[in-house]
Design a protein around this nucleic acid. Sequence first.
DNA 1: CAGGAAGCGTGAAACGATTCATGAACGAGC
DNA 2: GCTCGTTCATGAATCGTTTCACGCTTCCTG
Lengths: 331, 331
Amino acid sequence: MKGDKRSVTMNDVAREAGVALGTVSKVINGQPVGETYRLKVEAAVKKLNYQVNPSAKALKSNRTSTIALIIPNTIMPFFAVLTYHVNIALEKRGYKMMLCFTEYDRDREQEFVSMVVHNRVDGIIALTYNPKLEIPAGIPFVTIDRFFSVSVPCVASDNFSGGQLAARKLAELGCRRVACLRTGSSLTNEPSKRKDGFVSGCMEAGLSFEMCNLTDGSPLSAFEVFLRHNLLETDTPLDGLFCGTDLMAWQAEKMVRDLGLRVPEDVQIIGFDGIRMFGDQDYICSTIVQPVPDLAETAVSMVLSNDFTGLPPLVCLPVRYQPGGTTKDSV
Amino acid sequence: MKGDKRSVTMNDVAREAGVALGTVSKVINGQPVGETYRLKVEAAVKKLNYQVNPSAKALKSNRTSTIALIIPNTIMPFFAVLTYHVNIALEKRGYKMMLCFTEYDRDREQEFVSMVVHNRVDGIIALTYNPKLEIPAGIPFVTIDRFFSVSVPCVASDNFSGGQLAARKLAELGCRRVACLRTGSSLTNEPSKRKDGFVSGCMEAGLSFEMCNLTDGSPLSAFEVFLRHNLLETDTPLDGLFCGTDLMAWQAEKMVRDLGLRVPEDVQIIGFDGIRMFGDQDYICSTIVQPVPDLAETAVSMVLSNDFTGLPPLVCLPVRYQPGGTTKDSV
DNA sequence: CAGGAAGCGTGAAACGATTCATGAACGAGC
DNA sequence: GCTCGTTCATGAATCGTTTCACGCTTCCTG
């Protein structure tokens, strides 16, 4: 069929180099081989432009050099950036990534897990929403932001400290009465510790605070009702907001503006994630920055770890505060 | 080694079903087989929970059911959304995606092309920046937004019409003097037709316009200089902006606000791409929306087309205008 | 200088699928 | 009833690696 010039095989290399097949294999895989032989093989490889056939290698060795990343989508900026860094970390180590988009669907999450196991990936990194996800045995499985059990290593930002930090910053910046806006209250996972940290930080700083939890189905406009009431129709209006994500902060900023108030003069806002547009430039709001490249790097190095069962059950990476235009400390 | 329970093979299925190996293969691949045999095989497959081994299949058939997507990253929202839809379109057809992030590096682009060819992908979809990219023969290759030659099919939005549409809208909305802000002037590709369409639209509508082209290296602040001059230090200030991307529009909106003007009251802004945050909700600005799901779907169906050489050299998909808060027609 | 351990290259077998030459089974035609 | 043709299941060969038992060298020791 179409110009299928048969490709160069190890056998061709062996013949060209005048050595045995096994010797070529050893050279290719960096196993110890006599200097003379290695040189001959390397010359032949170069001459014939030989490249290993990944399918054959995978078939025989039962390893695919592929790691699955199970994640809702790449539409949400946090997921998009995480996916990027996971792929970069994998590429650096000679691995490929198999992407599985679940769109938060619990059944799809479970199906993808079986699917990638059948596809014989060498490991799985998952950011999922099914608390009852069945985790396959016998294959390295690392989660991001979801703690299942001590035998399933989890990588996450230090969400609790991030929440605390936000509260402290708002206090420092002169806020008297603040609120925490968040969604997804139905699920307990690592990110839900942001609010816990925030509460802790407020108490510590003696800051008066409100909670506004949107359950999964509620429309975003519920925030608007909350804000209208607590900004305009009260004697002690809010002057600070902590939002569960930057996107939420971005929405909140709009809502506050639409209510005729100024950001950050009247209301200061801190988000979470550290999403920026334009590469290294603007943040969409003042925020608690997650170390996404580190999250990715850590998850990858854990899933590829030689001693998988020796890994710590939960790795929390440090976050930092970043002014970004919605707080008074922004330049 | 670790619980490597040998997996179920076609041979096991054949034995279980009491038929020959070849028969099982035919059933699995949907080739015609006697009813009785098919039923026996299907029963055995179910009983043993057989799944084909992709590596073995790829090795023998020389097809991997994998398509490479070569793209700068998934950090820019447009790329992120495109990647998402490409993956969904591929998954629907039983294909996997191999992601290659180039970060706009021409050498990496070229390296990835060779790499994926060696990895024997069944086709390549590429969004690249190297005008001299060498396109491999003998493998379906579809580009997005970059036209190379009539023999390399390209899928793009109708950028020219989009530019025209933006100009017409600004005219309709009462603008008298407008400008086009864009970057990346050094490269001629499909998106660069946006400005051409815009120019054409302005002339058609009798609208006075300025061009502000940022070459690749320039800092974003050059826009600020341009805007300050054309908004504050002139007798006939601009009252409308068309930006090459939504991100640029988002920046421009900030700059205009920082200059003390109101959006959309004083200056109306239209972007390009149709980026939204929050799924189906907010657009970050009034914009010309690219049909990203269609772009992905089209690119995928083209790259998998049976009659690859019969494809049209350039497919332009229709765009639409979407009010989003930075124009006076927004509710 | 003989004996034996250590080192290392060799090449056949195996991984699990696809493919195709082979021949069995069956029906039609005369 | 016999021949010829068609249909279709069969299973051996093959894809390009990895692996490992085997045996040849080399070199050290006594």
